[in-house]
Design a protein around this nucleic acid. Structure first.
Lengths: 172, 172
DNA sequence: GTGATTTCTTAAGATACCTTAATTTTTATC
DNA sequence: GATAAAAATTAAGGTATCTTAAGAAATCAC
């Protein structure tokens, strides 16, 4: 049994909120078409994007999903999307996964960790300009597809400042 | 077979460099005693701490270890330490892990991801003061044990600024 | 226990990035 | 295709955090 095969799918119009802070996250979404974002809202009301998920990517709040806690994050569709989803109940079938499937799961988790760690390194050690250039290299398709203000949020800067960064880069 | 049982251990004096940028990381360390740090050095020569690992924590460069790439990070002992270590060759025995072991591995990876994601949220959305207070809550033992300048680096600020933050907190 | 090293603090000036607000450009709607 | 809405840019002034440098406090080495 493969975790994401033969799942139900549903269409999600742009702007739909799939998970709100305080909710318990009962699904793991796999994006078939479109794009989702996860984000937090800080004390002063500002939104900070944690992850994007476009085609074939997975999106969930792991902490909430695995540990049955209220979530601290939001998940929205930023394009008209279609998602396959795993619910808590069919996730419990994980114990029925065979050895090869578990190894595959393991590998995906490791890759996810590697990616998240790179993001961390980037936030800690790179300037706004470097982070933007790195994003362009790493996600060339997303940059064409998403509004810059969402990318700015993902990169940890304001849209206005990203605009400055882009202008300075263009002048070079 | 449990991954970290019955492994060799070795003593590592404070200051020892276990992994340097450019090296291929051939070990996963489990700290028996003492403390390690992993860090990057940015373009201007500044050090940014990625992780600490004290007793029972695991330390490695996953990207380098799993994908046999040259590493971008350093790993040093910041106290006289003792570590158990898994090498690439005995890691390949992972295919001999039984179902329960793999599930356990999976769970550890998930927990690691959850922790790293919290760190990310923190860096994106919290002020220096909030990050410091969060660190005290999350790692009360480390704060007593490690020099503040290392904690400042981990929190993404300079030691001088952390000192300011602490003074302002003390005045309240 | 004394000198040497490392850590921590303080303070002044600098800078990366933010805020607000207005304008322009692009995209969506009917 | 005109109008409305959303996104992107620009600019001025502000703030959080950094840099440099120096001194005080704590820790280490013998």
């Amino acid at each position: 049994m493969k975790l994401f095969d033969n799942l139900q799918t549903k269409k999600i119009p742009k702007g739909t909120i799939l998970l709100s802070k305080g909710d318990s996250c009962r699904s793991v979404y796999k994006v078939i078409k479109g794009c989702l974002k996860s984000y937090v809202i800080d004390k002063s009301g500002k939104e900070h994007i944690l992850h994007f998920a476009s085609e074939d990517w997975i999106m969930t709040d792991m902490d909430s999903f695995m540990n049955n806690k209220p979530s601290n994050i939001f998940i929205d569709a930023i394009e008209d999307s279609e998602v396959a989803f795993l619910t808590s109940s069919n996730y419990n079938d994980i114990s029925q996964l065979d050895h090869g499937d578990l190894l595959e799961q393991n590998k995906k988790l490791v890759n996810n960790l590697i990616t998240t760690n790179k993001r961390l390194i980037n936030l800690l050690s790179a300037t706004a300009e470097e982070r933007y250039m790195d994003f362009i290299e790493t996600y060339p398709t997303l940059i064409q597809r998403l509004p810059l203000k969402l990318i700015a949020s993902y990169l940890g800067m304001t849209p206005e400042y990203l605009s400055d960064v882009r202008r300075k880069l263009a002048q070079k």
